[in-house]
Amino acid sequence: MEHDLMLCGRILLSVIELEVTDGIECQVYMAREIKTGEIVALKKIRMDNEREGFPITAIREIKILKKLHHENVIKLKEIVTSPDGNKYKGGIYMVFEYMDHDLTGLADRPGMRFSVPQIKCYMRQLLTGLHYCHVNQVLHRDIKGSNLLIDNEGNLKLADFGLARSFSNDHNGNLTNRVITLWYRPPELLLGTTRYGPAVDMWSVGCIFAELLHGKPIFPGKDEVGCSLLMSFLLVGIVGEILLTKCT
């Protein structure tokens, strides 16, 4: 059964598949735009714990996405609300272009290993999209495989700007270090810094690159201490091998 969603008093969308993803952070649905037949994705804006109106994090995400227009950044098409009379009553949704896969989903397929040309293609698109964000003074702050969406033609787009923040080169204010999924979080954030810039995104990109080549995450710590120790052992091991080679 399809349920209509409304925008400014007119029917815009019908939900055709429920819960494409249903995680702790967000719910995403597949829908069809009635007028054009285009398939789109709906991301529900969580209002559960909001007592003072529209959540500031959603306002920030919408504001950032509205100013970003690039082939490797997911496109925000509309904001829609659901009318009374169906199971989505009172819901507010962000409407995005639909992408067929995410990088983590592809990588987790049994026996899946990306070829070198595929890795080059994905990394070029990731770096191009992220460079565009940084030039426009936006930190993504949550680069990971599940936030890299890919269509059936191999086009990659950066998605989920829920933790993104605008920045300026002359701004020295503090930012939270409780960002970026743990396995992709750089050492400076693990050590507590609150002043950082685009380099934190680039560390995450490096983790993605290594993961594509290696076939699994390279810093799969269970907590912040575990990730810090794993990074230290790997880095010290590399330095030790270099010194040993020079000594012999």
Results as ranks from 00 to 15, higher is better:
residue 1 M to H: 12
residue 3 H to N: 10
residue 5 L to K: 05
residue 11 I to L: 07
residue 12 L to T: 02
residue 13 L to E: 01
residue 15 V to R: 03
residue 19 E to T: 01
residue 20 V to Y: 14
residue 20 V to H: 11
residue 21 T to L: 12
residue 22 D to T: 05
residue 22 D to P: 00
residue 23 G to T: 15
residue 25 E to K: 09
residue 25 E to P: 00
residue 25 E to Y: 15
residue 28 V to D: 03
residue 29 Y to F: 11
residue 32 R to F: 09
residue 37 G to V: 10
residue 38 E to R: 15
residue 39 I to A: 13
residue 42 L to I: 05
residue 48 D to R: 05
residue 49 N to R: 03
residue 50 E to G: 03
residue 52 E to Y: 11
residue 52 E to P: 04
residue 53 G to C: 01
residue 53 G to K: 11
residue 53 G to S: 06
residue 54 F to S: 02
residue 57 T to M: 03
residue 58 A to F: 07
residue 61 E to T: 07
residue 62 I to S: 08
residue 62 I to D: 15
residue 62 I to H: 05
residue 63 K to Q: 03
residue 63 K to E: 00
residue 67 K to G: 04
residue 68 L to Y: 13
residue 70 H to K: 07
residue 71 E to Y: 01
residue 71 E to C: 08
residue 73 V to C: 04
residue 73 V to L: 04
residue 74 I to G: 01
residue 76 L to F: 08
residue 77 K to W: 00
residue 77 K to H: 02
residue 78 E to I: 01
residue 79 I to Q: 04
residue 83 P to M: 06
residue 83 P to K: 10
residue 85 G to R: 00
residue 86 N to M: 04
residue 90 G to D: 02
residue 93 Y to C: 04
residue 95 V to Y: 11
residue 98 Y to Q: 07
residue 100 D to N: 10
residue 101 H to A: 04
residue 103 L to F: 14
residue 104 T to I: 04
residue 107 A to F: 10
residue 109 R to Q: 15
residue 111 G to K: 00
residue 111 G to I: 06
residue 115 S to V: 09
residue 116 V to C: 06
residue 117 P to W: 06
residue 120 K to G: 15
residue 121 C to D: 08
residue 123 M to Q: 05
residue 125 Q to F: 08
residue 129 G to L: 06
residue 130 L to P: 15
residue 132 Y to D: 05
residue 134 H to V: 07
residue 139 L to E: 01
residue 140 H to N: 09
residue 147 N to S: 12
residue 149 L to T: 09
residue 155 N to F: 15
residue 157 K to P: 00
residue 158 L to D: 13
residue 161 F to K: 02
residue 163 L to V: 07
residue 165 R to K: 14
residue 166 S to C: 14
residue 166 S to L: 14
residue 167 F to E: 02
residue 169 N to A: 12
residue 169 N to D: 11
residue 174 N to R: 05
residue 176 T to H: 08
residue 177 N to V: 04
residue 179 V to Y: 12
residue 181 T to S: 15
residue 181 T to F: 09
residue 184 Y to P: 10
residue 188 E to L: 06
residue 194 T to M: 07
residue 195 R to Q: 15
residue 195 R to W: 03
residue 197 G to Q: 08
residue 199 A to V: 01
residue 204 S to E: 06
residue 205 V to K: 00
residue 206 G to N: 13
residue 208 I to V: 15
residue 208 I to E: 07
residue 208 I to S: 07
residue 212 L to I: 03
residue 213 L to Q: 09
residue 216 K to V: 15
residue 218 I to L: 14
residue 218 I to Q: 03
residue 223 D to N: 15
residue 224 E to W: 05
residue 224 E to L: 04
residue 227 C to A: 12
residue 227 C to S: 11
residue 227 C to D: 04
residue 234 L to N: 10
residue 238 I to M: 14
residue 238 I to C: 13
residue 240 G to E: 00
residue 246 K to V: 13
residue 248 T to F: 06
